[in-house]
Design a protein around this nucleic acid. Sequence first.
DNA 1: TCTCTATATTGACAATCATCAATACATATG
DNA 2: CATATGTATTGATGATTGTCAATATAGAGA
Lengths: 133, 133
Amino acid sequence: MNDAITLTAPLTEAAESDQDVLARGCCNLAPNSLQIAEDDATRLAAMFKAIGNPVRLQIIDMLSRYGGQACVCDVESLFDLSQPTISHHLKVLRKAGLIDSEQRGLWRYYFVRPAALQELQQWFGEMLTVRNQ
Amino acid sequence: MNDAITLTAPLTEAAESDQDVLARGCCNLAPNSLQIAEDDATRLAAMFKAIGNPVRLQIIDMLSRYGGQACVCDVESLFDLSQPTISHHLKVLRKAGLIDSEQRGLWRYYFVRPAALQELQQWFGEMLTVRNQ
DNA sequence: TCTCTATATTGACAATCATCAATACATATG
DNA sequence: CATATGTATTGATGATTGTCAATATAGAGA
């Protein structure tokens, strides 16, 4: 699969011929090609990993539309999963810093932490703008 | 951890008292609270999952700065991992649609697919704007 | 205090993942 | 064709994950 190689982004040196490439050789890595700190990479990856599950992604989607008044049984009603499993996914999202919760009477209400979503959105912004250098 | 619950977003009904909440009860879920299709959720989650690993996140970071001229040995030189492991991570990213590659002589060059990053960035945009409704 | 309800935790299990060593494949060159 | 080099695949292994049933915890009310 994916046989048809279509460049969605122009290569840096599109004019560079194959011969040039071969002459230049490989592995001439520019300095500081890894600009993101390992700590940041780990922290961001943990957040992405939390979203990287269909159920949890849908929970984020649902919570973001629900603006902070969703209890566990609300979330539960959307999926064909047991209550402990929903509780588990909520915990994963909370530990990643993507959501938070608040107790109200007998129920615990969950809500998205916009700051976390913004940070991730911003990361894509960097990836899309800081190209070549 | 995370004991101090700080609301970064106001709850929808901030004025709603605890008594109101208790009176209203729970699980009065608004219709179509799950607006994202399951297929989309699965596809997007797969992309996030691919980024949800520190090594792969750093590969994306590195490739986005490198604009399309990074071969496997370039990537390899940034990590203390074996060549097969790097190859594996590149494959995961490629299967998720986040990167693509092109053979040039003896080397295979990898590059980011900006359209994929844009789609994910846009998803965060939706999550941050489509609140409450 | 006892009961009821909402949510969290524990423990178990199959499935997936990250990693490496060994090997295979592909491209260029002599 | 033979050899060398860059990359991909295979197979194995320990670690992590998603899920559920069972159980525990916590708040509200009788």
